[in-house]
Amino acid sequence: MAKMSFNDYGRCMAVYNSWQNRVLYDLCDQIGAEERARDRGMFFKSIDATLNHLIHIDRRILGIMKTGEAPVYDAHTQVADDFETLREIRRELDAEIEAFVSSDDCDWQDGFREFTGVDGITRNLPRPLFLIQFFNHQTHHRSQITSELHKMGLDYGITDVPLTPDLPL
């Protein structure tokens, strides 16, 4: 690869995202349902609620990138109430994200989306900006969970993007 394009960025980050989510879910599986459901004082209280939030927002942002539209926003949407269902949804969503960013159809990058943020301000933003937000948002909330896992003595391991296995370069 001579230069890294925006499309290359998307593909690399999607593979990274899938890898990090596999690591996260494997560790969360080790702590059991009671620990995942416990109110830990996190922004969304529990690990389960944070995992649900991530999937809900990922679906919204993927919708914006694919069609310019998104499901209704509710920060506390519960996508699934059991961990195995949540994990399966996560796997399917990560595969969908990888397929989307690997597509040769990049017309979605030409569009804009009127978007009202949690600050109440409406902006007209280029849709490619949402790809960046997509991965930034996931990293932000995964770090909240990894901090809790660290407190429980679990080592999350490597999080460096350049060390992603099977990075598509």
Rank of each mutant, 00 (worst) to 15 (best):
R38T: 11
E88W: 06
I158D: 15
T159E: 10
S103R: 09
N124A: 08
D39P: 00
V161F: 05
K66R: 11
V79T: 12
T159C: 13
L169T: 11
L24K: 06
F6H: 05
F43V: 07
D58F: 11
D26W: 01
N7G: 09
I121S: 01
V79K: 11
T139E: 09
F6P: 03
E88Y: 06
D82Y: 00
S103H: 09
D82S: 03
I145Y: 01
R90Q: 08
L93S: 12
S147R: 05
E96R: 09
E92M: 07
F112Y: 14
A95D: 09
E84D: 15
S147V: 05
R11K: 10
D8E: 10
L154M: 14
D107A: 15
P168S: 02
N124M: 08
K66Q: 14
G120F: 15
F130G: 10
P128R: 04
M13D: 07
A33T: 08
G153F: 05
H150S: 14
A37W: 06
T122F: 07
E148N: 00
F100C: 05
T159Q: 09
H150W: 15
F134N: 05
V15L: 02
A80N: 00
T50Y: 02
T116M: 06
I97P: 02
D26Q: 13
T159I: 11
E114T: 13
E88H: 11
L27M: 11
D110N: 15
E96N: 07
F83T: 00
S143H: 07
C106E: 12
K66T: 06
D82L: 00
K66D: 07
N21T: 06
P165Y: 02
A37L: 14
D104T: 15
A95P: 03
G120Q: 10
S5Y: 02
R38K: 15
I121M: 08
N21K: 05
A49E: 04
H53I: 02
N7F: 05
A95Y: 01
C28P: 02
W19E: 06
Y9G: 04
R87H: 14
Y25K: 08
S143C: 07
N136F: 07
G153A: 09
N7E: 14
M13S: 09
V118P: 10
A2F: 04
I145W: 00
H150N: 12
S103Q: 09
R127A: 10
I145M: 00
